[in-house]
Amino acid sequence: MTPLFNSKDNDLRELAMDRDRAKGLHLTSDHFGDLLGRGVSEAASPEAEWVDAHLLACQQCSAELAELRQSLALFRDATSAYADEQMRQRPQLVPVRRAQVRWLVPTYWAAAAAAMLLTALLPLQVLRQHSSSAQPAAVAASATGSSAIDHSQSDEALLDDVDREVSASVPTPMQALADPSASNASTSTDISDSSSSQRKN
C-alpha cells in the first residue's frame, strides 16, 4: 500500500499546517460541501489533498465534520423511520395484490348495476303507487254513482206524488171539507195512504 505522503510531502504538509494555524485558517463551507456532498464516484477537487491534511491536523474542523455527518445520518434515519411508520398506518398505501383487485372489480360492477337497476325501478314504483291510490278513488266514484241513482229514484217518486197532488181537484188534506158525506173510514184511508206515500219518500 503506497503511503499517502512521502517525506518531502510530509515536510510541505507540516509547513502548510503551521501556516494555517498561524493564520487561524479552517475549512470553508465549500470544503465542507465538497466533503459531504461529494459522492463516491466523483473525483476529488484539486484542493482535496490539502483538505485531507488539514483535517488530520485540525481537531476543530474534523470534529465539526464528524458531527455534521452524524447529524445528516440521523436526519436520514429519522425521516425514513417516520415515513415507514406513516406508510404502515395507512393501509391504502400498501400495494394491493392484483388478485384482490380482481375480486374487487366484480363487486364494483355489481354495485353499479344495482344502482342503475334501482334508478330504473324507481319511476315504475312511483307509477304503481299512483295507480293503487287511483283505485280507491274509482271505488268511491262508483259508490257515489249508485247513491246518485237512488237519489234520482226517490226524486222521481217525490215528483210523482207532487204531480198527483197537483192534478187532484181538491188537495188531500181538504178532501173532508170538499165532501162532508164521505165516511171517516175513507178519509182515514186517504190520510194513511198519503202518510205512507210520504214515508216512502
Binding site: S29, D30, F32, G33, D34, L36, G37, E64, E67, L68, S71
Partner: peptide, 20 residues
C-alpha cells in the same frame, strides 16, 4: 446541482453550529 447543494449545506452547517 453542486452549487445548490453547497449553498444548502452552508446554511445547514451555520444553523447546526448555532444550535450546537
Amino acid at each position: 446541482v453542486k452549487s445548490h447543494l453547497y449553498r444548502a449545506l452552508a446554511i445547514v452547517r451555520t444553523e447546526h453550529g448555532r444550535a450546537s
